[in-house]
Design a protein around this nucleic acid. Structure first.
Length: 434
RNA sequence: GUCCGGAUGGUGUAGUGGCCUAUCAUGAAAGCCUGUCGAGCUUUCGACCCGGGUUCGAAUCCCGGUCCGGGCGCCA
């Protein structure tokens, strides 16, 4: 049984005379003496409940008018087409039931009359999400996920899950969160990278995974989190160019789907979504460096990773999504395939939004001996990768893939200032609650 | 980690040594009002992050701490 017959957004003046049951939160009440209005809010919008004292009687009038804001109510009543009411209709109630009263004062103002700081909002996130513009972002995020899954299914890519609890710091470098696993030490996985590659060795051919990744880096910016959702793809018998086109197709598809299916939410957020056009521009690392040094006088040596200033400069110059390709092998992970004729650069790429990096990927090393060599070059011990290397000794298809940050995709799509706005309950250097 | 900025009613803020019994908005409580739609009007309630110092006097200046925001760094 569902305690409502309609969402407020589903009601139109054409339903005049119909009995409906709405359920939701008390957005606000306005008492004018002989007539009072209660505005009910649910996920699809607002509905005005009109109480005429003469019609409903003194007792009901008084009890409804004193329901505290944000209380949960169920309203049974009749739809009345009414030009004076918002959206041309109102509900004349026969029964208003308080299912759960809200305490006062509220930890923040869900009607958005008063601004609220991010920290306050996150402390009372459940109430923050009641705000229509916040809810809209998460509904759009869900639409993005739906569109990406549909896109992957159409491309015959198999959805998989890989372990989030792992035995070792598999890729070296980044800091992992240690956890206790019975009598053993374990870690929260930083990336499904090694597992999705092993699935290429398993003959799964084309896989994708959407799941959490964990990084214990002490970064403190508006675009980093310690727990994030990663969208990972790995494709056998494909090269870097092929997976780049799958990646740009995925991004375009997400934008297109949201533009076509989320007009209500985009309206709530005041956004006019421009769908990017594929193919995205391709720029090599070396070209990017030249562009940056010529125009901005940035002091970067070939072989340095791009700093934030350079990244931002490139974003401003280019002004749309673009790929950075042919990176120095020295700054990409060991599993990135170097060019055969020019091993100092590799088939790694980053997908960039003008504001930040969205994804990175590569054609992978599939040759066992080269992989061992690359691991050693990075100063890592191949012994620690035996579970992974084993999959490369018995026939490993050539393969390529990428990982895309969901929150960054949503954040850039919706022009959100802070990545925390794109995560329901963000985990950062300081925040573990709620 | 580091640099810069900040912390005032539930929320968002004004206030740079005495004019602060602390401003405004929102909110809450009570009342008036039959068409509100950020309703209006009247009355009331509610705050200077913690510790130390300077001073006749500190929300305001200084020191330490805690927390928050922004930049950078870190980021397979």
């Amino acid at each position: 049984m569902i305690l409502r017959t309609h969402y407020s957004g589903d009601i139109t003046p054409e339903l005049d005379g119909r009995e409906v049951v709405l359920a939701g939160f008390v957005h606000e009440t306005r008492d004018l003496g002989g007539i009072a209005f209660l505005v009910l809010r649910d996920r699809k919008g607002l509905a005005q409940i009109t109480l005429v004292k003469k019609l409903v009687g003194k007792d009901m009038f008084k009890s409804v008018r004193t329901i505290s804001r944000e209380s949960v109510v169920q309203v049974r009543g009749q739809v009345k087409a009414e030009p004076k009411a918002p959206r041309g209709f109102e509900i004349l109630p026969t029964d208003v039931r308080v299912l759960s009263a809200a305490q006062v004062p509220l930890p923040l103002d869900p009607t958005e009359k008063v601004e609220c700081e991010l920290d306050t909002r996150l402390d009372a996130r459940f109430m923050d999400i009641r705000r229509p513009c916040v809810l809209a972002a998460f509904e759009i995020e869900s639409a993005v996920l739906r569109s990406l899954r549909n896109y992957f299914y159409r491309q015959k890519i198999t959805e998989v899950f890989t372990p989030k609890i792992v035995a070792a710091a598999t890729e070296g470098g980044t800091d992992l969160f240690p956890i206790s696993y019975f009598e053993k030490e374990a870690f929260l996985n930083q990336s499904p990278q090694l597992y999705k590659q092993m699935l290429m060795g398993a003959g799964m051919d084309r896989v994708f995974e959407i799941g959490p990744i964990f990084r214990a880096e002490e970064h403190d910016t508006r675009r980093h989190l310690n727990e994030a959702i990663s969208i990972d793809v790995e494709i056998s018998f494909a090269d870097d160019k092929e997976v780049m086109s799958i990646l740009e197709g995925a991004v375009v598809e997400a934008y297109r789907y949201v533009a076509e299916n989320c007009s209500y939410q985009l309206g709530v957020m005041g956004l006019d979504l421009q769908v990017p056009k594929a193919p995205f521009r391709r720029i090599t690392y070396t070209e990017a460096l030249e562009l940056a040094s010529e125009r901005a006088g940035v002091k970067m040596q070939w072989g340095d990773d791009l700093d934030t200033e350079t990244e931002r400069f490139l974003g401003e110059s280019i002004g749309e999504h673009y790929f950075l390709t042919d990176w120095p092998s020295s700054i990409k992970p060991y599993y990135t395939l170097p060019y055969e004729d020019k091993p100092e650069i590799c088939r790694g790429f980053d997908l960039m939004h003008p504001r930040m990096e969205l994804a990175s990927g590569a054609q992978r090393v599939h040759d066992y001996n080269l992989l061992v060599e690359r691991i050693k070059e990075k100063g890592l011990d191949p012994g620690g990768f035996e579970f992974y290397l084993k999959a490369f000794r018995y026939g490993m298809p050539p393969h390529a893939g990428w990982g895309l940050g969901l929150s960054r995709l949503v954040m850039t799509m919706l022009k959100l200032e802070n990545i925390r706005d794109a995560v329901l309950f963000p985990r950062d250097r300081r925040r573990l609650v709620p």
